[in-house]
């Protein structure tokens, strides 16, 4: 009796294709990742349950660091206008060159009288420079001047005022920044935070669950 011969299948799988895919993915992830730039001023943000993304357009960001120094960031779309407005208000002498340099700076971290030398510091040396921060106490409130300039420059357009403070910033510094805004009749701010999960079992958690159920039905 002849028995049908079962052909032994080869169990070796060609791994080449899989290897290709793996490294392709790896390359993709590495290349698309945006690395966090090391900032000259380090700020560790507190966390909140808020799930709104921080606006990036028309942003006027006041940062307060651990030592209660105040720095100013602006998104590029409003930066030039604010600078022009401030120059006009303060009657400063600037050259077009100054303006160009100003547009290239990431942030402003010195009183106005040092501004022109500040914008000439190369960005890779900012980390080693001792920065004074923008004065914001009642005698010489330059922060307020910046805010006024921004509000005037925007002239009716809604700016997003963001406050970005360090975990260990003391409350009075934050209070003074708020005061500077209030003096300009600005009462709406966004506090920049890191996202955090809503604690389980809390009132907000239950409500979110309910809302999810409602939208599911």
């Amino acid at each position: 009796m002849g028995r049908a011969k079962i052909k032994r299948g080869n169990t070796n799988v060609d791994m080449t294709a899989m290897c290709d895919v793996a490294f392709l993915l790896l390359t993709f992830f590495i290349l698309t990742a945006q690395f966090k730039q090391s900032e000259a001023v380090e700020i560790s943000l507190p966390s909140s349950v808020s799930n709104r993304h921080a606006p990036e357009k028309d942003a006027f960001i006041v940062s307060i660091d651990k030592q209660n120094r105040v720095f100013l960031n602006m998104s590029n779309d409003i930066k030039g206008d604010v600078f022009d407005e401030l120059v006009k208000e303060r009657n400063m002498n600037v050259t077009p060159d100054d303006r160009k340099l100003f547009m290239q700076t990431d942030f402003i971290g010195v009183p106005l009288n040092q501004l022109m030398s500040f914008i000439r510091i190369p960005s890779n040396q900012l980390k080693n420079t001792q920065l004074a921060g923008i004065p914001y106490d009642s005698t010489n409130n330059e922060l307020q001047a910046w805010i006024t300039a921004a509000a005037t420059a925007a002239s009716g357009d809604r700016l997003n005022f963001l406050i970005k403070a360090d975990n260990s910033t003391k409350y009075p510094a934050f209070g003074k920044v708020i005061d500077a805004f209030k003096k300009n009749d600005i009462y709406k701010y966004n506090l920049v935070t890191n996202a955090e999960d809503v604690p389980k079992g809390s009132v907000l958690y239950e409500e979110n669950l309910k809302a999810q159920h409602a939208s599911g039905k």
Binding site: A22, F29, R52, A54, L162, T193
Partner: peptide, 22 residues
Amino acid sequence: ITFFIFTTTVTQATAMPLNMPK
């Protein structure tokens, strides 16, 4: 790939609205 995915933190900052009274 797994290592990079797990060690990457998604750092999209959120904003917490604060409205102060006059």
